[in-house]
Simulated scan of single mutants.
Amino acid sequence: MTYCVGMMLKQGLVFMSDTRTNAGLDNISTFRKMAIWEAPGERSITLMSAGNLATTQAVVSLLDERSKSQEERAPSLLAVPSMFQAARMVAEVLREVIEQHADTGQRADSTFNATLILGGQIKGGPHRLFLIYPEGNFIEAAEDTPFFQIGETKYGRPILVRAYEPDMSFEAAMKLLLVSFDSTLKANLTVGAPFDFHCYDADSLKTGRTGRVASDDAYFQKVSEGWGEALRDALDMLPEFTLGPTP
């Protein structure tokens, strides 16, 4: 399983992805699930993936090859004129890969399915964020839906819904995402550190601050322990529930 989050802020975009993949409890590996393409001063595009590893790696490899191709007609993330066109192109590549692998054609419930988060900015347009489904269709983040999750989403969603603010800083967003990821990995063993992140500054048109947070990272340990203590303290502060008399 996987957990990835892409978040829209007034300041830019924040991406975070875990790195655990598994084919059973005794076959756990670490793979990067985030890819970045850039042409400094012209565009920066980030892709995160969840689903069948062979499918997602094939999608990233095809996008890489086409970005390096010298053929003018070859569709490339480094050549599309807008983020909308980038989302269309990635969706087409995803559908193409799934159709090639599935015996009976593309199906949403196929073992070869995958879901993607695509975000970034191309010169002349705003920074944008998209969620791409295995069927090849996609939706865009907006004011009412300012972040997307893929993979094991349910455990880390409550804190995002309650604490997200569009004008929060990158530092505050990173803290929020680490709490969300900590809640997820504690509830599901198929999600695990290290976590890759990318903070893209709006209108910079280049790769922003990137890094990897390991499970033994000192700050992450403080966030994990502090969040647990804060939850216990908050529970103690709530009014006591009163039971009626024993029947």
Rank of each mutant, 00 (worst) to 15 (best):
M89H: 12
E92Y: 04
N113A: 13
S49Y: 07
A74N: 10
S82K: 02
E71P: 00
D64K: 14
P40C: 03
I45A: 02
W37V: 05
Q100K: 06
S76E: 07
R107T: 10
L94K: 01
D109G: 11
A102G: 00
P40I: 02
T104V: 05
E96H: 08
F112C: 05
I28H: 05
L116H: 11
G51R: 09
E38D: 10
S76N: 06
I36Y: 00
E92I: 00
T104S: 04
A35T: 13
L53P: 00
A39Q: 14
E65S: 15
S49E: 08
S44I: 06
S76I: 00
A87C: 01
F84Q: 07
T104I: 02
A114V: 11
A58R: 14
E71W: 12
L62G: 07
R88F: 00
R66P: 00
M83N: 05
N113Q: 14
F84E: 13
G24K: 09
V80D: 05
P75D: 06
Q106T: 12
V90G: 02
Q70H: 11
V93D: 04
L25I: 12
M34K: 09
E42M: 12
D109E: 15
S82P: 04
R73V: 09
V59I: 15
A54Q: 11
V60I: 14
S29V: 07
E72I: 15
Q100A: 06
I28E: 11
